[in-house]
Amino acid sequence: MILLHYGNVVPFNWNTRGYRCFYCGKEMKDCDLLKEHTIVSHKVIDLETFIPQRIISKDVPVKIDITQLGCIVCDIPLASIEDLIAHVVGIHGEEYDNSAGVCVFPFHLHKEILQCVLCEEKYDNFTSLMGHMYKKHMEQACICQICGQSYIDQVRLKRHISNSHVGHRCKFCGRIFDAFHHLEKHKEIIHGIQKSVECSLCSTTFVNQYQLKVHMGKVHNVEKYRLKCEHCPKICTTKGAMMLHVQSLHSDARFECDICDYKTGIKWMIKLHKRKHFGEKNYVCSICDKRFGRSSNLRAHMKVHTGNFGRVCRWCRQGFIDLLNLEKHEKEFHFYNQYA
């Protein structure tokens, strides 16, 4: 704030679309227009009020143009940011916290050629100049692998990750969730954002990649999604389904039912199998109240009502004729209070 108060500098922001005014956010392609706009439109700024609101994180240095660097109070030119800091401390008696690290990035903004203020390297675009600054003049420059933001040390990078990326943050309201599928369900119910993937052959949409792969294999006979078992004529549409099939029927590691002769290579399949012996039927059709021991049997049963495979609520195990009815049920009975 001291540098902005005493220095004849122009603070600015930048992204791939161009320059943005530091004070009002107006976007401009031309750096000369940016400087003119800032000087004319924001000549008088209450920095003590504005800066705490504008700079949310002290970890990101402020970009400033120092083409006409000098002290605006004394009306004298200065050669560098270091000279400005020394002048403000020595002449005006201000305190400057050097332990704060790099607080500003100085630039010479010109239309044609952008020259680094710290060396003689020149570039024809601001993107290249920024890359040069981070690589050549920032010791141990650390880049967040999640969002691409850069920081001057690991401490500030870790602080950024902790504040911005721990958990899964909703970009619409800022709420953080401990699981990605909770975030997706929140965005769908609260913000009306539904993720979908489209079949490139018939334009049918699905809620996830797995359903699309099954569709491509079964409906369009795409060879990539029709995996043939090496041991029998069984065909699966995904590697996961094929792995489950092989482990269940063709694996040497056998688990046996202690009531009948049923054997499987998957331990938890024994638990499902025993439901037949004990009569456990926890999956209920919401239309005719018929009960089933497996969700897959309930989904297949829904063909009786609609001709299509149904859906099963993972919370109460009720069956529904389609995704729309299932989502309506989940919103009303399971998710509204959790994500509101």
Rank of each mutant, 00 (worst) to 15 (best):
S251I: 04
G240S: 08
G174R: 11
C285Q: 01
E120F: 14
H250I: 00
C24P: 03
V197N: 11
Y23F: 15
M28I: 01
Q145C: 10
A241L: 03
C232A: 02
F105G: 10
L227C: 05
A179F: 14
R159M: 09
W14V: 10
K63N: 12
I161N: 09
L298W: 04
L212C: 08
H186G: 01
G307T: 03
Q149C: 03
Y339N: 00
L33V: 09
C142K: 15
K136Q: 14
Q68C: 05
A86F: 08
C170Q: 02
G25D: 02
S248E: 04
S128C: 06
P61V: 00
Y283H: 07
C103G: 11
F105W: 14
N8E: 15
K35S: 07
S41R: 08
R156P: 00
H220N: 05
D258N: 14
K234Y: 15
N221A: 06
K213E: 11
C119I: 06
T306G: 00
T38F: 02
S286M: 13
K290A: 14
K267Y: 10
E121T: 05
S162T: 09
H181M: 09
I72Q: 14
H137N: 03
G319K: 02
H305Y: 07
A241V: 00
D97R: 01
K290S: 10
H87E: 03
K303I: 00
K271P: 05
M133W: 15
Y336L: 08
Y339W: 10
H181Y: 13
V89F: 13
H220W: 11
H37V: 02
C173M: 06
N297H: 13
Y339H: 09
